[in-house]
Simulated scan of single mutants.
Amino acid sequence: MLNTFYLGDVVEMKKEHPCGSKNWEIIRLGADIKIKCCGCNRIVMLPRSKFQKDVKKIVKQNIPQ
């Protein structure tokens, strides 16, 4: 899955978070990607390779102008 991700994008992950939400907001991009759960606001940092493998789809894209 080759996607371009932007700050503020909301993505759906393959696995559900323990709070019940599958949607996460991207809050930092780089070699590691920091995402915030849309259900409980928990913040998690993942390596980019694991993040790209676990993303199911982009729910809301925040394309910069």
Rank of each mutant, 00 (worst) to 15 (best):
V11N: 05
G39F: 05
F5S: 04
D54Y: 11
M45S: 11
K15P: 07
D32W: 02
W24Y: 07
I43V: 01
V44Y: 12
V59P: 05
P64L: 11
W24L: 06
N62Q: 11
E25K: 11
I35P: 02
I35V: 06
F5K: 01
P18N: 01
I58K: 07
L2E: 15
I27T: 15
S21Q: 00
I58L: 12
N3A: 09
V44E: 03
G8Q: 03
C40Q: 10
I27G: 13
E16H: 13
S49N: 12
V55R: 04
C19G: 08
K57V: 12
F51K: 14
P18S: 03
N62C: 03
M13N: 00
Q61H: 00
N23G: 06
Q52L: 08
C19D: 14
D9G: 08
I58E: 06
K57A: 13
L7Q: 12
C37G: 09
K50L: 14
C19P: 09
M13I: 00
P64C: 09
K53G: 02
I35H: 01
L7V: 03
K57N: 14
I35W: 00
H17C: 08
S21I: 03
S21T: 00
F5I: 08
K50E: 11
R48T: 00
K53Q: 06
W24V: 06
K53V: 02
I43E: 06
N3Y: 14
G30N: 15
G30K: 09
V59H: 00
Q61T: 15
S49H: 09
I63W: 02
V10A: 02
K50S: 10
I33G: 13
I63N: 05
P47Y: 14
I27Y: 11
T4A: 15
K57D: 13
D32T: 04
V10S: 02
T4F: 08
P64N: 13
D9L: 05
L7D: 04
G20S: 09
N41G: 11
I63Q: 09
N23D: 14
G39C: 02
H17M: 02
C38G: 14
I27V: 14
G30D: 15
K53H: 00
G39I: 01
M45E: 12
G30Y: 01
Q65T: 01
K22T: 12
L29W: 15
D9W: 09
V11A: 01
I35D: 03
K60V: 06
G8C: 05
V10E: 00
G30C: 08
K36E: 00
N62R: 02
K50Y: 09
K15H: 08
I27P: 02
C19W: 04
D9T: 05
L2Y: 12
G39L: 04
M13E: 00
I27S: 08
M45Y: 04
C38N: 10
D32E: 04
K56P: 06
W24P: 01
K56Y: 08
V10W: 00
